[in-house]
Design a protein around this nucleic acid. Structure first.
Lengths: 341, 341
DNA sequence: CTGAAAGCGCTTACAG
DNA sequence: CTGAAAGCGCTTACAG
């Protein structure tokens, strides 16, 4: 039974462990950090003391001594509602957390109300408070990340917009190829008037998907004139669908750049009495839970979102270890055929 | 022009500021921490030096010296997909971030894959790595939070389940009253067979809403036998609606315990050719973006989710300052009438 | 393989 | 109102 101070008991320190194990603090430190230079029986003794005292290293002291924070920023330069509203991001974030689970790193959430990080976030990131930053959902028109990238290891979810980045670490899928695959599928179904509902023009993935759709159509000798734009929300998918229908009532297929927008589009179609896929076939993108949550399963382009998150974490971890890493990780997509096309 | 070391320039320290301002480190520290015990002209000089050198205090050193981490954990003991999928939580989190914006605290994200925190999270929280924890979406069946609550200031989003908590800080709405209000509204509309789609039985808010529905019905001399259960997801709302319809085809109204579930229920209704609100009136709960995203605006019980998040942050901040705070903050709900009832 | 000692960048009594 | 000095709990050359 150990004597305790009255009131708040203070956590055991390295010193306490050293005393208990009968070694120096240096040695305990080595054991804690997994050095191979310690005699096995000493390791055992130290570990026993650690377990006995329930010792947990003090992060602040550690950080101060070796100037590593063991924290990674999760930067979300995006309207929170949109970010949280999209199941695709849910998967990405879950993957990141999962990929970091085995490490000692923790995630610092840096939310923005708009598409640019707040002053507080900037100060925080540049102030040496994290060892790296993972940026999800970035947009053009914000050059802060070029600065950040010169200061810290940064990993982007999705190919970043900025050509002037020093490094350029990201994980993504081949969005253009995925979109082309979806469009070709529609062409193969015999559809003649294939529209697209694109994502916002300040996001690279949206641009690439639009480009893939367009290319596939031209390759098939078809016109790529039917294009409406959304912003990856359900509501924007709905209004884009309305636009499209008003403009060209003979539409018989739509490649929609995200499943979430596809659910909005499908609702409008049903509302107007058009059958899916009978009258209008729909192919989405993501294969998120939005594709299976509704009344009709959405045929879509699958991206391995959870794995992408895991990969982002892994990439960050190897940057942090100073290991040589390929900067770009392009993961595979595939068609998932359900009911909507 | 300052001389710089070759290679990575190291951040300026207190020492550097002190030298530049011609005072001691103690004085600079006092200025940085806003002490009123410093002569105004000295304050000015120090601030000038700080600005000039672009000094940012080192968090680790600060933490080590005063054993405050300036970090707050955001604990999400919930399946990530469900958490991220619900716009209600988006608002809560945004509110929390907003409430913390002006403070020096940062948010550490602690995600769980299940409804209990991971070993890493537990170790982290108990290891003195944060000054407090904000727990959103907690469930019964996990007694970790009773332990945590004895160690750290904890604020819950929603009244917690555990009677054995030492403190009991939370912000919530009166869920039972809100549900009763919704049900009464339906009664007032002349509806005769009013069902409910409840939330999961391990969440207090779900229980309270179910109770409110039940009470209102009994008060009106009506039967409260039509009850199906979901888990706050769209899909579960849909299948609960199907159950209800199969069980009692004469249903003419449903109080659904969340807007997200209501969208699922409405989709099923339309699918079966039933008009909303003509055949079946629907009232949801939350007034999240799910209530307005679909084809039909959902009549719902509004809870001030953003403000609730802000309030959670504020409560945490005053706990951290050691200020006397009321433990419970019950915010108002109100009916928002749209199209579905 | 191990320990003594310096140092990381702050804060905070304490003395003046 | 201000400064010298000790201390927060680690890590890491350095010497042995």
């Amino acid at each position: 039974m150990t004597l305790e101070q009255p009131g708040r008991r203070s956590a055991p320190t390295l010193e306490a462990v050293a005393t208990e194990a009968g070694v120096s603090r240096s040695t305990v430190s080595r054991v804690v950090n997994g050095s191979s230079q310690v005699r096995p029986d000493v390791v055992t003794a130290v570990n026993a003391a650690i377990a006995h005292l329930n010792y947990i290293p003090n992060r602040a002291a550690r950080s101060l001594a070796n100037s590593q924070t063991m924290a990674i920023a999760l930067v979300v330069p995006e309207d929170t509602t949109r970010f949280f509203g999209d199941p695709f991001f849910a998967q990405i974030v879950q993957g990141i957390a999962q990929g970091l689970e085995e490490s000692d790193y923790v995630l610092n959430l840096q939310l923005a109300s708009a598409s640019s990080p707040s002053a507080k976030t900037i100060r925080y990131l540049l102030g040496g408070n994290v060892d790296g930053a993972i940026v999800v959902s970035h947009h053009s028109g914000d050059d802060f990340f070029t600065t950040l990238d010169a200061t810290l290891p940064v990993v982007f979810g999705g190919r970043p917009y900025y050509p002037e980045l020093h490094t350029n670490n990201y994980v993504d899928v081949d969005n253009a190829a995925g979109a082309a695959m979806a469009t070709n599928y529609l062409v193969g179904l015999g559809r003649k008037r294939i529209a697209t509902i694109a994502g916002p023009a300040n996001m690279q993935a949206a641009l690439d998907r639009s480009e893939g759709w367009s290319r596939a159509l031209r390759d098939a000798g078809m016109s790529d004139d039917l294009r409406a734009q959304g912003d990856f929300t359900v509501a924007s998918g709905a209004s884009a669908m309305r636009e499209l229908l008003d403009e060209a009532p003979d539409i018989d297929a739509v490649f929609v750049a995200s499943d979430l927008m596809a659910t909005g589009a499908i609702a409008v179609l049903r509302d107007r009495g058009l059958a899916v896929p009978g009258d209008v076939a729909i192919v989405g993108f993501d294969d998120s839970s939005a594709a299976t949550g509704g009344n009709i399963g959405i045929t879509t382009v699958h991206q391995p979102s959870l794995e992408m998150g895991v990969e982002m974490a892994r990439m960050m971890l190897s940057l942090l270890r100073g290991e040589p890493t390929e900067r770009e990780c392009i993961m595979p997509t595939r068609m998932v055929i359900r009911d909507s096309a």
